[in-house]
């Protein structure tokens, strides 16, 4: 039943995306000037319509008397909602925070801070030696291997910088 509901939500969202996409294509991309070419509009428009068609199939499937689970043969994964929300929020929060810190404090400080935040407050492992070891080890290790040995450009901070 939950699967059927999620299929209805999914197909409705995809139908909406498809409609918005087609509208965007028609209103912003110029069509071909003559009939001998497909132009820049043809492909995205065709794909948008195809997405709509496929979404419609999912929607119609979800109204069939047999539950969608048995049709697709795949039951939705058994995941606790709270754990899932926590994991998604933690990953997105850490990555966004890392991007912001990289911009302002540069690679070394940003990496050390984010690793410490991930191990301590996020994972809840309050072992100072582990936090310190991972923070320094990862930032220094990546700096030496990628920055120095492989020549990968690591970000410099706008405010402070410890990379040299």
């Amino acid at each position: 039943m939950a699967s059927r509901r999620s299929d209805i939500i999914l197909s409705t969202i995809l139908l909406l995306v498809s409609a918005l996409w087609c509208w965007g294509v028609v209103t912003t991309i110029p069509g071909a000037e003559d009939g001998s070419r497909l132009g820049a509009r043809g492909f995205p428009l065709g794909l948008g319509l195809l997405l709509g068609g496929l979404s419609l199939i999912i929607l119609l499937q979800s109204f069939r008397p047999t539950p969608a689970d048995t049709i697709d043969g795949e039951a939705p994964p058994d995941i606790s909602r709270g754990a899932e929300l926590w994991a998604v929020a933690a990953t997105v929060g850490l990555l966004v925070g890392y991007a912001a810190l990289l911009e302002y404090t540069g690679f070394m400080i940003a990496t050390a801070l984010v690793v410490a935040a991930a191990v301590g407050p996020v994972l809840g492992i309050w072992r100072p030696r582990l936090i310190l070891g991972m923070s320094i080890g990862l930032s220094l290790g990546i700096y030496l291997i990628f920055g120095k040995l492989l020549g990968v450009y690591l970000p410099y901070g706008k405010l402070i910088n410890l990379a040299f």
């Binding site: 990953t91 850490l94 990555l95 990289l102 690679f107 990496t111 984010v114 994972l123 990862l138 990968v152």
Partner: peptide
């Protein structure tokens, strides 16, 4: 945690 850091470094590079 290490992979998360690599995602940031790799994408920026």
């Amino acid at each position: 945690v290490g992979i998360l850091i690599m995602c940031g470094v790799g994408t920026f590079a």
